[in-house]
């Protein structure tokens, strides 16, 4: 009885593995996986910029992913999900607890499947903006002097990591964030996060300066 059962379940899982690897973009596969793995408990993948009060923001258990396909660089999500090193120095929206680095870890096949699904989630606000990631000196000045963005964000400066702890680390932004999203986020943050603890900088300086800033930020290694 027992043996038969084991044999059958082994055969089923073998079949599932074969099916999985032969057709990695099985219709709805990534989405189904996302739900099955409990990711929905902490990440919102539908709707729009809906957290319009401080209470709603503080209730979130993880960053919203409904525009993941516009936010992240191709390849980043799958890589990160197999080795989820902390991005935010603190636990999500916490002022006291450190990020323990205990995010769910996935095996590569699962990570690829889910990443393919997340990359289909786009925001219409993000358009080709011509932002070219490079060491834009004007942008660096806006970041360091005019707005002191490092007050809340870590960056790597001559191999040393410096900066505040309340915002996501900007170390490795070049491999993580889509430059067009960075520009859209800095010019129109409320299209993504109507309420958040990062101040709105759009409108304080010219759009030209914001594009210099986006070029610098998107180049951060």
């Amino acid at each position: 009885m027992r043996l038969t059962y084991l044999n059958i379940s082994f055969l089923i899982s073998l079949l599932a593995t074969v099916l999985f690897f032969s057709s990695p973009v099985l219709a709805g596969g990534g989405e189904a996986f996302f739900n099955k793995k409990g990711c929905l408990e902490c990440h919102r993948v539908t709707g729009g910029p809906d957290e319009t009060t401080i209470e709603a923001v503080l209730e979130k258990k993880g960053p919203e992913l409904w525009y993941a396909g516009s936010k992240f660089r191709p390849g980043f999500i799958a890589r990160w999900l197999t080795d989820p090193k902390p991005i935010r120095p603190m636990a999500y929206y916490s002022l006291t607890e450190k990020n323990k680095g205990d995010h769910v870890r996935l095996v590569p096949a699962e990570a690829l499947e889910i990443a393919a699904y997340l990359m289909t989630l786009k925001s219409a606000t993000v358009k080709p903006s011509g932002i070219r990631p490079h060491m834009n000196i004007k942008g660096k000045k806006v970041f360091g002097k005019e707005f002191s963005c490092y007050a809340c964000h870590k960056i790597k400066n001559r191999k040393k990591v410096l900066g505040g702890l309340s915002g996501p680390s900007l170390v490795g932004t070049r491999a993580r964030l889509n430059p067009d999203w960075i520009y859209a986020y800095l010019t129109n943050p409320r299209a993504f996060r109507p309420v958040m603890d990062m101040p709105v900088f759009a409108g304080l300086v010219s759009p030209k300066k914001i594009s210099h800033l986006a070029e610098y930020v998107s180049s951060l290694e």
């Binding site: 923001v57 002022l95 410096l162 505040g164 702890l165 309340s166 603890d197």
Partner: peptide, 21 residues
């Protein structure tokens, strides 16, 4: 929500962004 990250929850200037650098 907005100020305590730098000024501290009690306002004493000791929020999490008050770093030596």
């Amino acid at each position: 929500f907005y100020c305590a990250q730098c000024h501290g929850t009690e306002g004493r200037g000791d929020g999490i962004n008050d770093r030596p650098e």
